[in-house]
Design a protein around this nucleic acid. Sequence first.
DNA 1: AGTCTGCTCACCCCTGGGGGTGGCGTACTC
DNA 2: GAGTACGCCACCCCCAGGGGTGAGCAGACT
Lengths: 206, 206
Amino acid sequence: MLVSVVNDYPLVVAGVQHLLQPFGERVALTAGPRQRPDVVLYDTFGRAQGPTMRVGELLTRTRSRHLAVYSWNLSEPLVRASFEAGASGYLFKGLPAEQLVEALERVSAGTQVSPQPSSRTKAPSGADWPGRAQGLSVREAEIVALITRGLTNEEIAEQTFLSINSVKTYIRTAYRKMGVTRRPQAVLWGVQHHMTASLGGDEPES
Amino acid sequence: MLVSVVNDYPLVVAGVQHLLQPFGERVALTAGPRQRPDVVLYDTFGRAQGPTMRVGELLTRTRSRHLAVYSWNLSEPLVRASFEAGASGYLFKGLPAEQLVEALERVSAGTQVSPQPSSRTKAPSGADWPGRAQGLSVREAEIVALITRGLTNEEIAEQTFLSINSVKTYIRTAYRKMGVTRRPQAVLWGVQHHMTASLGGDEPES
DNA sequence: AGTCTGCTCACCCCTGGGGGTGGCGTACTC
DNA sequence: GAGTACGCCACCCCCAGGGGTGAGCAGACT
């Protein structure tokens, strides 16, 4: 089974690939987008989710037939919207690696894979994201990444399917860890700490 | 006469040097900070002015004996504060190049050179600054440069000796030319358009 | 003369943002 | 069990920022 991990942040992609590494007999990883992977594993960190995902374009670009969403957010409307947008699977980012591989194999075989409810918030060992080295939680980091793109709190709330209040909370806790107090400082911090997406991103900006 | 042009923005330095180029028989330019220039020409674009300039440190670092401030701002309190801070000359940025050279020669000879009142706002031909290619006036560009450093409007007003209202006005007009509407966007614009100072800057940030 | 550009400033009003407080649930560690 | 961290959310209050309006001055150009 050939898998392509898709996300704008090289650290995130590397972290997921690191997760799958021990399962080399069952999963081959491709970095190139043109090698016809069996499954595209679409990590939602800092990216469009649900109805605004461009599943068709991603599949065309990668010449793959299945796309599995890989996300922390298990809210029912978002999961449903992802399937309606064309995803073949919706995988929880808290899954242990072996279960992740099994789910990918089911997606690759043509089965629609839905997530089980879970409240786990701890990332699997080896996962990575920009800002982690500076003490940001995965959620804080994602918010900061979107701040670094110039989005407003409202826009961030919409993209992450969170309440504006949750966004503000993450900003508050993240700013304390970053040692900043205002948005421009946060943007600069993000630029300096590689929270900007790679230039290959084709994300539509609001 | 050996002159060292000092500013954080290479474009600004290059623009001033370009101005002085035709006077090669009277002015030699040094890029290196350790060649004992006769005069340091301190361009204030995006830098501390007046009482917060560190004239002594600049002179020590460059091993020069005279520092001439080069600024658009001719307000009397700022000029006085500059001399009190240790400057030997205060030169208006609207001066034609020949008069600039003459003024530098007087400074080099040990004369304290004060500016004549002037209302001119047009930069001498050949001057340059970051953002000029994108249509920003020199004043607008300076404000954007300070925004890109993460300063608040109040801090910018203090550093530029302008009213908060003037700062807001420049922000308004600059944002229209830049095609942005919010500060984070402006910071990103500044980063992308080289409005960040070079890393050698020893500017104290508030 | 008129017009345009740039610089400077004032004032009004509203929005985006950020500080605080409080609360809930879960996983994990000791 | 208690404590901590993380995720999620509400509400209060205030500030930083940005949109608008208006005004004045001067230089440069036609």
